[in-house]
Design a protein around this nucleic acid. Structure first.
Lengths: 96, 96
DNA sequence: TATCTATTTAGAATTATTTCGAAATAGGAG
DNA sequence: CTCCTATTTCGAAATAATTCTAAATAGATA
């Protein structure tokens, strides 16, 4: 997926919370959903599908469970993109 | 502003293009708008206001012009946030 | 096979974002 | 003071994102 979709996925605080959950350990969809008592399982599934489309997580099916885990490599691309905006010539503020 | 607003601001490709423009040099709102022939000046002003609320750019008023320039420091915060998801224990994929 | 559990998909309602044209603001020029 | 230029704000229309319930899917178990 493209950079826009990745950033959009990360822009949502509930999806960021999901990333933190699967960072610690591989989890089933239902275990993730149970961390969000105010969301339906269908809504959590929707958010997970966005994270998966953005390659931020991967899924593995086993028995009738779906396991999700983090894919850390995409974050390195984001870091590279951000780095072009940091540190470059501290630019003394010239008068207009 | 919060992290969500910052990421949401960056998630839009037109706003990212604006960031690249003001990275090179401080520009007036009208100069930025002229890089987007398919957008009205009002729309560009709206996007710039989002970037400003996210502290990704700063504005300076002089005569009846408004100058925008990049604020690189926010990108360092994004990099720090992303770094927590990279490199941590390459995690051999265990069987389920 | 019939049924149960885990999860996703479909469809609809709600809310948020993007965009425009028109009007408002602000400062400079005549 | 009056007009002009640069930019933003307002209000409305179009588009996209989020959420739900209900139905569908898939695999396990009795």
């Amino acid at each position: 997926m493209g950079f826009s979709e990745t950033m959009k996925a990360i822009a949502d605080p509930q999806r960021r919370e999901m990333l933190l959950l699967v960072k610690k350990q591989r989890l089933r969809a239902g275990e993730i959903a149970s961390h969000f008592p105010n969301l339906s399982a269908a809504t959590v599934s929707y958010h997970l599908s966005l994270l998966k489309k953005a390659s931020l997580i991967t899924e593995t099916k086993y028995k009738n469970f779906v396991y999700y885990e983090l894919n850390g490599s995409v974050f390195e691309e984001i870091i590279l993109w951000c780095a072009q905006f940091t540190g470059e010539t501290p630019k003394p503020p010239k008068p207009l």
